[in-house]
Computed example of a mutant assay.
Amino acid sequence: MAAPVPPDGWVSVDVRASALNGHDLWSLRGVGLTEADLPRTLGSDAAGVVSGTAEEVIIYPVLGEHPPETTEALDPRIAPLLSEHHDGTLAQKVVVPRFCVLAKPASLTFEQAAALPTAWLTAYRMLFVLSNTRPGDTVLVQGATGGVSTALTMMAAAAGIRVWVTGRTEHARTWALQAGADAAFEPGARLPERVDAVLETVGEATWVHSMRCVRVGGRIVVAGATSGPSADADLRRVFFHQITVVGARLGTVTEMRKMLQFVERAGLIPAIDSVVELNEAAVAFKRLEAADLRGKLIVRP
């Protein structure tokens, strides 16, 4: 296959490492892609080198005519995720708008940097932009081992926020504690006290618990529904307890830069479950579907 040629205002990046996300699984199942879109190269996360240069970069995964800098500009109709309308990062080369190319943190390997764009940017927006929490507050992260959950745990701990996590297995809860959580509980467990914010990516299986665990006037920030999108809204609790429910989708270019700066200042190293070669991607997708991971799955072309 011929190497992609970047149009005006775009650049070509030699991919050194890419990361898998739940979004890739949904795409494989046909969500968001039609037969007319095929063939399509999947993948939205990558780190690499601008072709023909020594510029080491990390790719911002949201496309568009201009850099998205507001919540409205993150509307998926005008700012699609890389691989939705354009070929993605599970390749040796990828072309993206120039504004999507940001300097790779020098402290991270290409594999570590590739873990950041979707999961860590989403977590950064959930925690620092939308949760309305500050150092000393307590947050509950639903789910212990996913990419976003692990990023939330590590960043919250680094920011001086008390982190409680739920996990289905003892192994998962131990993992969360090692990642920086202050306490880990079984799903649905009664907590010692209500929390200032719940950071929710699981959905149907944890939603009732999330509603019961947040304090009066607290927030629930939702960025996913891996267990299903249908949940008991419990509207009476929402208005009686004055709970704010807010959705999160990735983040702006400025938030991506701030996230990268925070990671470097705090000395955080993204957790990597394993690294596979591109010809082993099918095996990696099966592991992603099984949801038995400890950090991100990295694909190296």
Rank of each mutant, 00 (worst) to 15 (best):
L152V: 04
A114F: 13
R190S: 14
D137G: 07
E55L: 03
I220H: 08
K104F: 10
A189E: 11
V165Y: 12
P117D: 02
H241G: 07
K296D: 03
T226K: 14
W26M: 04
I220P: 11
R219V: 04
P39G: 05
W164I: 05
H209Y: 07
E72S: 07
G88F: 00
E111K: 11
V253R: 15
C100G: 01
K296F: 15
H171K: 10
T150A: 06
A158G: 09
S44E: 09
T53Y: 15
W26C: 04
V11K: 02
E65M: 06
G43C: 10
S210V: 01
V195K: 01
D87E: 11
G22T: 01
V245M: 08
N21Y: 10
A233E: 08
E186R: 13
G64A: 02
A151P: 02
R168E: 12
A282R: 06
I161L: 11
D87K: 03
I298L: 09
S274I: 04
P80V: 03
M256N: 05
R194C: 09
A181N: 07
N21H: 06
E280I: 06
L177Q: 14
A281M: 08
H85S: 09
L293M: 11
Q242S: 06
R249A: 04
D234P: 02
P301S: 13
A183Q: 14
V95G: 01
E204F: 08
T34G: 06
L25I: 08
H241F: 13
M155W: 15
M211C: 09
P97L: 02
V129I: 15
L140V: 06
G147D: 08
F110M: 03
G251F: 03
A54N: 13
E255S: 09
G30V: 03
V5F: 10
A19M: 03
V165I: 12
V253H: 14
A46G: 09
G188E: 10
V57Q: 00
T244Y: 09
G167E: 04
A36E: 12
A151Q: 05
G203K: 00
T153R: 01
V214D: 00
P192K: 04
R98D: 12
L127C: 14
A54S: 13
N279V: 02
Q92C: 08
A248P: 14
A91M: 04
V13D: 00
M155C: 14
